[in-house]
Amino acid sequence: MRNCRKISLLGALMLLLAGCRQDMHDQPRFKPLAESDFYADLRSARTPVEGTVARGQLHEDTYFYTGKIGNNPGDFMPFPVTEEVLARGRERFDIFCAPCHSRLGDGNGFVPSRGFPRKPPSYHSERLRKAPLGYFFDVISNGFGIMPDYASQIPARDRWCIIAYVRALQLSQNATMADVPSGEKVPSELPRFEEPGSGATLPVVEPKSANSAPEEPK
């Protein structure tokens, strides 16, 4: 009788403990960027073997991927600039460039103000307003001065979108009254921020009415 109870208790315990196994939760396969004890550098994510080209990575269009013709930066967009291109450029600019260059492109971004040895230059200087588009592409792809390269963070097409938007910023900051379409008021209303201090917070634009509602901020 005693033994019987012991055995059944042990059985129940085993059943309970069997529920604790995590084999199905943690399967022996690699999740992205997971650790591997197979390779010396402990990385499961491997770089392609030298000399191989991954699908879609054969960069035949050299201007699209370098912004250069020969050794000189070119000054044209590799694809037509549409409203979508500019909207994409604005979105990507605000993500990747604005922390340092500010949303205006004047170099007064928030991060450098926290103690960078020097501020990034303003896009609205004579030098950068005259710089060819390919020059910007080269700087984004390879870095310049203390600015690191953004090649791994921004795909080539997005870099071009950003450049188109930077040109638009430059035009906007050097616009004259002659550039204002007739019937538009200047200055336009400033967007209102609900609470200061969070750049991640988008400006809240009050809807005026259902019909003349302003466009949602992107």
Binding site: D94, I95, F96, P99, F110, V111, R114, Q153, S198, G199
Partner: peptide, 11 residues
């Protein structure tokens, strides 16, 4: 980094 500096998630 997000609220203090305003860096986007996607950065």
């Amino acid at each position: 980094h997000v609220a203090g500096l305003g860096i986007d998630c996607r950065y």
